[in-house]
Design a protein around this nucleic acid. Structure first.
Lengths: 197, 197
DNA sequence: TTCTGTACATGCAGCCTGTACGTACAGACT
DNA sequence: AGTCTGTACGTACAGGCTGCATGTACAGAA
């Protein structure tokens, strides 16, 4: 088996991704050099360009990791709620907003993702494990059941997702993130209420 | 008078800003070199760094121009509607969504602004002529008059603005922007309706 | 006329990215 | 064992780009 080397390779790749997440979250994509990343991962630039085609692709890997993490948390929180769509959406939104308190989520997912990757790569949500998909699925079901009236559940998903992202951004940039988190959460909840009737 | 030189200076500054808007809209901030910008403006890099401290500040000028333009259009469309807040918001939103069909608005305002400038500079809405302010003012008045129920008009402004931006992004990236513009407009309108009652 | 400040041009230093090339080693095959 | 192939990684280099330092031309004040 090519086991020894493959395992080492995976390990290096993960180390690079982890280092990238930390540094991108801290200083942003453009201000972080590949040298810094590899130094933090204990490797060299050669290793980086062996595992990733370019710096953008490393960012994509970092983004995917961050997104997947949120997805898992949201799903874990919403799963035990059965088919009460209103509550599932409410708690999912809450978990998402909480995640927006983390710097990595703020900078990588909310702030820089659309700019670093173009829209081509960013907006095609083919990614199976992204929070947006969860929102889309639940909203579509709500519209199907007639719980929410909307010309298009897809359009509504986009609007709500945009509102959530903005809420996250505001929370992230606020003087008192916790307090802002609370009030944004209430307002979103009110918005959901006005949709569900 | 220091008239001759000053006028020339303003002219150069405007030429640089205009060239920057075109190129940033076309290729994005990171992919556009200062050399390209000055060539298009018929100047040299020296002139650019005379008028702007760095490339970021040039982006800021470009953003301000784009934002101001939208602001003017939104205000012009909403002004003759008197104090019918619901209609003012509706038409303002429509004009904004139409503006999202333009590449410069898409890339500079919607896509890259938060990334290129940090949140510090982006989110402080001190800018007097930005579309967001109009939304805030109108929503605040609506809440004041009791037309809209919300824990905080500021929070609601953020959510709606986020929804609008996302709508703009979706419109921009859609296969058929016109059709998407229509359906997003309808959905936003429905959302406004559910707020105003 | 001289002097000062502004508008611009040019050349340079340093950093950063992407790539070409070299090395070490794990496993397959003989 | 010996060779051979492919992968993981290190190193050196070329090109481009930003920001600054320095030079020049000129408008207006004194």
């Amino acid at each position: 088996m090519t086991n020894r080397k493959v395992a080492q390779g995976e390990h290096s790749r993960d180390a690079l991704t982890a280092a990238a997440i930390t540094l991108f979250a801290e200083k942003g994509f453009a201000e972080t050099s590949t040298t810094e990343i590899v130094e933090r991962a204990g490797l060299t630039r050669g290793a980086l360009y062996h595992h990733f085609a370019d710096k953008d692709q490393l960012f994509e890997a970092a983004l995917e990791a961050v997104e997947g993490d949120i997805f898992d948390r949201v799903q874990a929180a919403a799963a035990p709620l059965g088919d009460d769509l209103r509550r599932r959406l409410g708690t999912g939104v809450g978990v998402f907003l909480d995640a927006c308190l983390e710097p990595a989520v703020q900078r990588i997912l909310l702030q820089e993702a659309p700019s670093v990757l173009g829209w081509e790569r960013w907006q095609r949500l083919d990614r199976p494990r992204c929070a947006r998909r969860l929102l889309a699925v639940n909203l579509a079901e709500a519209v199907d059941r007639g719980l929410v009236a909307a010309p298009s559940s897809a359009a509504l998903t986009h609007l709500l997702y945009g509102a959530l992202v903005q809420a996250g951004i505001v929370i992230a940039g606020a003087e008192d993130p916790r307090a802002t988190r609370t009030i944004m959460g209430e307002t979103v909840d009110r918005l959901l209420d006005s949709l569900f009737d």
